[in-house]
Design a protein around this nucleic acid. Structure first.
Lengths: 154, 154
DNA sequence: TGACACAGAGTGTCTTAACACCTAATATCC
DNA sequence: GGATATTAGGTGTTAAGACACTCTGTGTCA
């Protein structure tokens, strides 16, 4: 007799829990993102640009083509061309049309870009330590695991 | 003799763990955000606008002034005036200059705005269930608790 | 080998966010 | 009670993101 009601209550509770989880992810991302922006801002970098210089450093001298950069970005970014335009204008990256496949444009870090991202390592590490240093290893691993699980298809 | 080395290794491990946690938060937010955008897009709403109509529904007939809206938003938003301009042009909200304190501008939901956010409840609930339904209550509560902890000052 | 599909990169254009600045109204304090 | 600070809201302008479309080069297949 109270089954439907119970089910609804449970559904409601579940819904709220999902929503609460979503809001917590969003809020936490905003807080961490804001902190990183405050570190990157004085260097004229956005978070997206920082991700690009990091992935280009990881790619080494081989560099990456535009679509590889796009696909590896954390957030969907449909206009990588002009993002790289700006970074090239800032002297952070260098682009050269592919020789073998002339459709490709290879993007590599300039010396200045490499120096900048290397310099930022210490600042970013200190920021992360300040933001997340009060969590112990177990808590961090648990958080990482739960977030990874949350992103799984279903 | 190996203390320094150990310390460095540990520092490195901690750093990576912090960074991994940060990246997981960012990536998860992007995935969930994208999903919600796909639900809200057809209704002409951004996630920020959706948050506004939700908080205005919660505020009831009393409404909220601009700075209250700004302060309650999940992500920092320095240009709430024009955000509300657009929402007013779309017929979702209504603004009226305060009578007692003429500096204040009270914003309330229109009937259309209220109908839209009510209609969206089912869609958003279904989305969240699809995105997070494979986590059980314990996992969700643990995730929420860890994210809350992560946002604490230190 | 020539038409055609596809993939990679870039552009035009509109919308939206970001930053600094400005105006009006209220509070404060001597 | 009048100068001054503070608070709320809005605007001008630049930069960045979003979406559809185009251009060029490569693969494919009759």
């Amino acid at each position: 007799m109270t089954t439907l009601q119970d089910d609804l209550r449970q559904a409601k509770a579940f819904t709220s829990l999902h929503e609460e989880a979503f809001l917590n992810v969003a809020r936490t991302e905003a807080v961490l993102h804001d902190g990183l922006d405050r570190v990157l801002g004085p260097h004229g970098l956005s978070l997206t640009q920082y991700n690009v210089v990091r992935m280009l450093r990881g790619a080494g001298p081989a560099g990456l083509c535009r679509n590889e950069i796009r696909d590896r970005l954390i957030t969907r970014m449909p206009d990588v061309s002009r993002l790289l335009d700006r970074m090239e204008a800032a002297g952070l990256v260098h682009r050269v049309r592919g020789a073998a496949d002339r459709r490709l444009v290879n993007t590599t870090l300039t010396e200045r870009g490499r120096a900048l991202v290397n310099q930022l390592d210490a600042e970013v590490t200190a920021l992360h330590a300040g933001q997340l240093g009060h969590l112990n290893k177990t808590q961090l691993r648990s958080l990482i695991e739960l977030l990874s699980l949350a992103r799984e298809p279903a």
